[in-house]
Design a binder for these strands. Sequence first.
DNA 1: CTAAGTGCAAAATATTTGCACGATC
DNA 2: GATCGTGCAAATATTTTGCACTTAG
Lengths: 131, 131
Amino acid sequence: MKHNFSAKREAIYQTLSSTRTHPTAEWVYQQLKPSIPDLSLGTVYRNIAVLREMGLAKSIGIFGGQERFDTDMSQHSHFVCKKCHKIIDVPGGKKFVDKNIYTFIENECNADVESHSIMFYGICGNCKNPR
Amino acid sequence: MKHNFSAKREAIYQTLSSTRTHPTAEWVYQQLKPSIPDLSLGTVYRNIAVLREMGLAKSIGIFGGQERFDTDMSQHSHFVCKKCHKIIDVPGGKKFVDKNIYTFIENECNADVESHSIMFYGICGNCKNPR
DNA sequence: CTAAGTGCAAAATATTTGCACGATC
DNA sequence: GATCGTGCAAATATTTTGCACTTAG
């Protein structure tokens, strides 16, 4: 798709959306550094912030001290491994939470509810059976 | 309840569980500092870590750069204000996610699923109507 | 005596930001 | 030439940790 982004923003978006591992800013930087030697980590952070403002990326949360991002903006949930912090997509999620609950919370808390996320926690296959 | 904790650990646990604001370590420290002048922030962090290991507290996540804790270990969800990062308890949550989904994810991902959390995001009443 | 708890300050870490420069339109 | 994008490095901010000392048992 066409974005009319700067070359670096385009590369950052492409790298971010090229994987389902929900990368960190550092990971994106490491991926691109070889092919874009004058890339700086600050630029990666700044562009991810821009992508989020544009609705092209979102933060999944901070795990193991590093923020994880996702460009898959469709409705889905995540499983996070407590040991290695691997994040796996979980299909669905929409069916789990009825939007009526938004109204319930809005009435209870006098707040505007805009979104929700469901996180599952546990131990991933690799960490269960280390080799 | 009786814990046989050190005086400081006891105070930290009491302070943490005295509120439903899901405090930060810094907040707990500020609360206790006047009455326990020789308390140090490191001790607060270390004791919250111990409480978590003991299953008496848990982390809700990092919002606005600071980790938020909760001693209410019962099944419930949270609403987080995107602006001020106020966190409000949302009753229920159990009914939203069928435990069968754990099995589904375990089969799909070859992982052990131990828990889940549901977060709601939006703007709280105060931030909606600033005065 | 031993182990647990702690103050203090330094360290570690991730992220943000100020500034100057270069590119784009 | 005004705005946007960027490298670089310094600054921020939170959390962790090493060390020495104290306390409880």
